[in-house]
């Protein structure tokens, strides 16, 4: 066997292995989709049916009555949009200051901020909960929104790194021109880092959308809960009635928005994640 033949054979084998892997990765999700389109009793068919004879889209209409799914989506959107929009502004302007402006103790202050990366949320959640309960904010969305508005240290760190590679000359020239510092950020720096900001914003949005621990601590009333809690309650409630199609339909709805965002921006997201890993 010649070298190129051997190479072709190896590549074919690898392709098949990757294909099997891909099937294993996607099969549970397809199973979820398939279950969501079945009738309640069909999920117990043996051997299992992968493609139901009749697609039961009725599950997707029933879920809106079966639990506070709509308010869950609204609540998740309120939290994720307000935090990412305002938080991205505060984070990017801080990153700009850390990367391009001169002021005393800059390095020390940046390091102080970085220490918050080392402290996990579970270590802070009990006092935070007591703080917000003193303010009477338990069972509202505020404890999920307010901390994020002050910015995100990961984002500041990443954007600062990114800005360090932008030549100072552009900014120094504008400084001498007497541009105001806010304009220096908004009309010169921000356009330069827009792609990086967008990728970070999307990642942050997905993180908030999928968050579970903070919402479960604060939100008790069903109508105040975020989408992830609503579907968890679907699971707890309807599993007893073995209404798996209903549970899976609700879960698909919870999964879909982020999946769509990912499929649209997959190139940018994948690149951004890959860079953050290589730079450590």
């Amino acid at each position: 066997m010649s070298y190129s033949q051997k190479r072709k054979l190896t590549n074919s084998i690898i392709f098949i292995v990757l294909l099997i892997g891909a099937v294993a990765m996607i099969a549970p999700l397809l199973w979820m989709l398939s279950t969501s389109l079945k009738e309640k009793q069909d999920v117990f068919a043996l051997p299992p049916i992968w493609i139901p004879e009749v697609f039961q889209f009725s599950n997707y209409t029933a879920i809106w009555e079966a639990g506070p799914l709509l308010s869950g989506i609204q609540n998740s959107l309120i939290v994720a949009v307000s935090v990412t929009v305002i938080g991205t502004f505060t984070s990017s302007i801080a990153a700009f200051a850390f990367a391009k402006l001169r002021f005393p103790h800059k390095g020390k202050l940046f390091l102080a901020l970085l220490t918050s990366i080392m402290i996990p949320y579970p270590t802070l959640m009990i006092p935070q909960f007591m703080m917000f309960s003193k303010l009477g904010w338990v069972d509202t969305l505020l404890p999920l929104i307010i901390p994020g508005l002050f910015g995100n240290v990961f984002m500041i760190f990443f954007l600062r790194q990114y800005l360090l590679s932008v030549p100072d000359a552009i900014i120094e020239a504008a400084k001498i021109d007497g541009s105001s510092y806010f304009r220096l950020y908004s009309s010169i720096t921000f356009p330069l880092i827009k792609p990086a900001v967008a990728a970070q914003l999307i990642l942050w949005f997905m993180g908030i959308w999928n968050d579970y621990l903070a919402p479960i601590i604060y939100l008790n009333s069903p109508e105040n809960q975020t989408l992830q809690l609503v579907i968890a309650n679907f699971n707890a409630t309807y599993a007893i009635q073995t209404d798996y199609p209903l549970i899976m339909a609700a879960s698909i709805v919870a999964l879909l928005p982020v999946l769509i965002v990912f499929l649209i921006f997959q190139k940018q997201i994948i690149e951004s994640v890959a860079i953050s890993g290589v730079k450590g």
Binding site: M25, I26, N210, I231, S251, I252
Partner: peptide, 27 residues
């Protein structure tokens, strides 16, 4: 198909942890 593989393998990463926990609970 490298890009397609990358996307497929990445889908569980971006999927809601609550939703996939519910799915595995059933699986």
């Amino acid at each position: 198909g490298t890009t397609t593989f990358r996307v497929i393998y990445y889908i569980p990463v971006i999927s809601s942890l609550a939703a996939v926990s519910i799915m595995w609970n059933w699986a």
